[in-house]
Design a protein around this nucleic acid. Structure first.
Lengths: 369, 369
DNA sequence: TTTGACGCCCAAAGCGCTTTGAGACTATCA
DNA sequence: TGATAGTCTCAAAGCGCTTTGGGCGTCAAA
């Protein structure tokens, strides 16, 4: 009867079969030292034989741990169409599964409350910890979770970041190296195709862009700094706007590869050649980047590895390690492919090579191709 | 003390404050009819006041419902880089959150067991139901879940599909209309750039492709039917192989938009023009499809809506509705953009327009551009 | 021999909820 | 008036596990 494999067996049943108490069986299975080796082996064997697996709900109720961590989907669907996101998830799942943790995906839920999804996870004690991404400069989720005492780790920093755990790419560096790359190709009119201002990663990348420009003795032209609504069409329109300026850019630093795709289309639809008339640099190095036409020069960050690390960090924080220990900033790397090229190749300024970095105040040549 | 909002309050505490029994409070909150309207209102008000939310774990243990559904990530990472997947997830989350359900994402786990992730969800009773995707012609997951008595719904059918719930695109129709479209553009050498044979959607789409060809009086050329390893590079290589045949295709039906991207790059790197020398049709209509160069003609299925519907169906099955009631096949629609064009524009067969469908056995002209 | 000190095991008390099976009233009908 | 039928509420029994706080041998040291 109890040996019927299709009949779920519980701890009590298993204990009965073994002629032991539930306590002993439980402790044997959970690796307590006050169970003799011999008994443990006997228990384990029988458990395997009968296909015993503890009921996750019961264990959770008792232990007060949910063995679950949460992730709340933002409401802007465009965010999660990005393959980088799937990679992040996959990376997280990878380590969580290994440790028998679940990853639950929630949404913000109806109503305007941007904390809705988080409240639910916290109030109903559905999770032991939470992963955030797309952090904002002033991120209310961080304040909320901090106050609620819920362990969390964010993919990205924030200006209110205090002692919490985070993993972030060095966004400023990313903006910097992309811009440096273009400066090295003698570009002088370099645009920044960004995400909404509030996002920390946008803020930092813009800073890197500005720093590189300033170091090269160039001023920031506000006309060249745009913000998109974070959808592909947004970046297409924004890029089109840039290209139609009186003094269009010969290069565009894009906030991510998806935006770069939009920019590429915009360049083409203006009758220009990507990598010649206008150089494009993306960010993330999503899988299709290498397969675009032209293959995209981009700044790479390994989302899957980031997902793994985020999960590890969060688990450590849940286990009681101080969150402030886990603050990592990863260096991005430039992946050079073919969407960028020397400025002199651009037909946008046919009167000649753009002015050198050392002569910034010399007026830029006018006229479009 | 009990009114300290930072202090979590439980059912017992709430009952004490109200001077009622836990039973009554519980029943009031859960909408039982044997609680007077007056009491219910009083309970609800106090619960709101004190910020009471039931402990999800406890409720789950008691009720035997986990209020959670599961999704297991396949091991081929390429599958989930596809934006369609994020859409599917988002759609599911949308309806699940509304009904206070969680969506847990798991992975197959280490070891070769392809059912690993599923076993875990089932054995430890972590979920009330499961969503499958990427079904195979002979899908062991279906057999497993059927036997385990775990409610599930699959996105895609299978040849072993019996009475379980599924939602699927009409894949055969999708393959058919894509191929018909190309036939209508007078293409005669039409290739099929597919996924591995075992996948049901691949199987069906191939069938649609073959049917269209046969109806047009054309034979199937096995050389034109390829299978990729389901990564972008795979489709690039497969497409390159096709284009280097002695009699290359003037059109390619791709298994999805990601594969189409690979194919597009392949076409270009062979010095050919997409939409002129070689027409390309994708599948899914992922967000970037409209922004590719050229904008991709594709067969559309609304993944987000599919996600929503899958969740609804699964919830219904969990609630006890017979699974066999929920078997839906959605009609895909052709979205014409610019990656396909008339066969006569192709430089691959400069000797003239390919033979008409009515004269299939006439030998095809040879020679490449 | 007594006293600890281990080593191994167990009964019982929860974890926070839902549900069962009654009980105490009040209203209705014969 | 008693019987019958609601109406509203409650005590207590779990759900399946973990953990606390012993208990009972056995063995070495005193």
């Amino acid at each position: 009867m109890h040996s019927n494999p299709s009949q779920r067996i519980d701890l009590k049943g298993l204990a009965q079969v073994l002629g032991l108490s539930m306590t002993t069986v439980s402790r044997a299975l959970n690796g307590y030292s006050d169970v003799s080796e011999k008994t443990r082996r006997r228990v384990e064997k029988q458990a395997r034989l009968l296909g015993y697996t503890p009921n996750a709900q019961a264990r959770r109720l008792t232990s007060g741990m949910t063995e679950t961590i949460g992730f709340v989907l933002g409401d802007v669907s465009g965010y999660y169409d990005d393959p980088y996101f799937a990679q992040l998830l996959a990376g997280m799942s990878e380590v969580l599964t290994r440790l028998n943790y679940d990853l639950v995906i929630s949404t913000r839920g109806a109503g305007g409350d941007p904390l809705g999804g988080y409240r639910r996870l916290v109030d109903e004690r559905r999770v032991d910890g939470i992963v955030l991404d797309r952090t904002r400069r002033d991120d209310e989720r961080i304040a909320f979770l901090l106050e609620a005492g819920m362990p969390f780790v964010s993919f990205g920093r924030s200006e209110v970041s205090g002692d919490h755990a985070f993993l972030d790419a060095d966004c400023e560096e990313a903006g910097y190296i992309a811009t440096r790359r273009l400066l090295g190709l003698s570009h002088r009119r370099i645009a920044f195709l960004g995400a909404p201002r509030g996002y920390m990663f946008n803020h930092l990348r813009l800073r890197g862009y500005e720093r590189a420009l300033n170091e090269a003795g160039l001023d920031i032209d506000p006309q060249l700094v745009t913000v998109t609504a974070y959808e592909e069409e947004g970046s297409f329109h924004a890029a089109t706007g840039l290209l139609r300026l009186d003094h269009p850019p010969t290069a565009i630093v894009c906030i991510d590869d998806m935006a770069a795709m939009g920019a590429i289309v915009a360049v083409r639809s203006e009758g220009l050649e990507v990598g010649e008339d206008v150089s494009i640099i993306g960010y993330n190095d999503i899988a299709p980047a290498a397969l675009m036409d032209p293959p995209l020069t981009t700044v790479r960050i390994d989302s899957r590895a980031a997902g793994r690390r985020l999960a590890e960090m969060l688990l450590a924080v849940i286990a009681g390690r101080p969150a402030s220990v886990f603050q990592e900033v990863w260096a991005p790397t430039l992946v050079v492919r073919s969407s960028d090229g020397p400025a002199f190749a651009s037909r946008l300024y046919p009167t000649g090579t753009p002015p050198l970095a050392t002569t910034p105040d010399q007026p830029l040549p006018a006229g479009e191709a």
